Amino acid sequence: MEAAGHRTLRALRGLRGGAPGSLTVDPREAGRDRRDLAQALKTLRLVVGLSGVRLAVCCGISQSKISRIESGRVLPSVVDVQLIVQALHLDQQTAADLVALARRANIDYECVRASVRRGLHHRQRELAALEAAATRMRFFLPAIPTSLLQTAEYMRTVMTRPTSAAQGNVARAIALKLERQTVLHDGSKLFEFLLTESAIRWRMGSPGLMALQLDRLSSLSRLSGVRICVLPLSRVVQESAFHTFTVYDRSLVTAELFSGRVAMRDPKDVDHYIALFEFMLSHAETGDSARHLLARWADDFRDEGEQMPERE
């Protein structure tokens, strides 16, 4: 058993050839990370000589969850792994390697190309499932309104822009996005959308299209389960808006990048993004104040449209 344990430790330390505790995200390795983590935790428990029941008592995790973790049916959080390695009294190096592996296993990455290859409609169904399961969702939108807030024409403009990776049946994807918007009328859920002024006023199309999009935001803000918050450029905010992110309850964060999407489940990561959202929210306008800004900017777009020369 000891020899098997040493083999497991050597394999664990050489999983990616990186430094102990280093974090890399490779979409091709996501499944392997989970399998490696499950196998390593089980083998190390056997090396130490603890039963699953005894380990559960020592780390305060139910025996059934320990069993599901070791079989790969449940992905343990980083906190779970920290509790397990403490209960196993592993050396500092091994514990650090396991925690690093847990962090990798709790992060998923899907590139835009892979999402497009699967089909735009699959992504919409996945998002609909997330929105159906969650009761509170926080959206930080520094660059563009999310599709839950978009008009059909604005949506089409976004999906057919020159650099868009969208291919195939765009009309089908738009129909599914519009269908997803019905969840905003579910009064048992809370949707908090925090948009920067840049995201709201970024010119994705004609003045008329933009005015209607702003009207849409104002209209949705009156739904009982929807909160539209606006962060004006005039506000001093001592934090950077690096990227769009969404927090689902307290269990999942997704971050949008140019090249793809990252999903994070580590409770520490989730708590970090919730704190960041709340900090940004403390500087934002809400309710009637936010609607006043939206109406003013919409009127600006309408005035601009009226001043444009008519095409012959």
Rank of each mutant, 00 (worst) to 15 (best):
D97R: 07
L75Y: 04
R68K: 14
I69S: 01
V99G: 04
V81K: 01
A96W: 02
D108P: 00
V112L: 10
V81Q: 03
S77W: 06
L101T: 11
A100S: 11
Q82R: 15
R113Q: 14
V74S: 08
D80N: 10
G72P: 12
I69W: 02
V112P: 00
D97S: 04
I84F: 08
I107G: 00
A114N: 10
R73I: 00
H89D: 15
I66W: 03
Q86F: 01
D108W: 06
L98M: 10
R104E: 14
R113T: 08
V99H: 13
L83K: 14
A114L: 10
N106E: 12
G72T: 05
R117Y: 11
L83C: 09
V81Y: 05
T94M: 05
S77G: 14
P76L: 09
G72K: 03
V116M: 14
I107R: 12
S77D: 07
V112E: 13
R117H: 07
V78I: 14
G72V: 02
A102Y: 05
N106G: 15
L88S: 04
Q92T: 03
A102Q: 08
D108M: 06
L75G: 09
R73V: 00
V79L: 15
V99S: 11
D108C: 00
I66A: 02
L83A: 13
C111K: 05
L88D: 05
T94E: 13
V79K: 11
A95Y: 01
R103W: 07
Q82D: 13
S115N: 09
A96L: 13
L88T: 03
A105K: 12
E70G: 06
G72Q: 04
Y109M: 15
A114E: 10
T94S: 12
A96E: 14
R73F: 00
I84E: 01
I66T: 02
L83S: 08
S64I: 00
S71D: 15
L83I: 00
V85C: 05
G72C: 03
N106M: 13
A114R: 13
Y109I: 08
E70H: 07
V81I: 11
A102E: 12
I69M: 14
D108Q: 08
T94H: 03
D91V: 02
V81E: 06
Q86H: 05
V116I: 15
R117T: 10
L98F: 03
C111F: 04
E110A: 01
R117A: 08
D91K: 09
R68N: 06
Q86V: 06
V112G: 12
V116G: 02
L101D: 04
Q93A: 05
V74D: 08
S71H: 11
Q82V: 04
S64P: 02
D91L: 13
Q86C: 12
R73P: 00
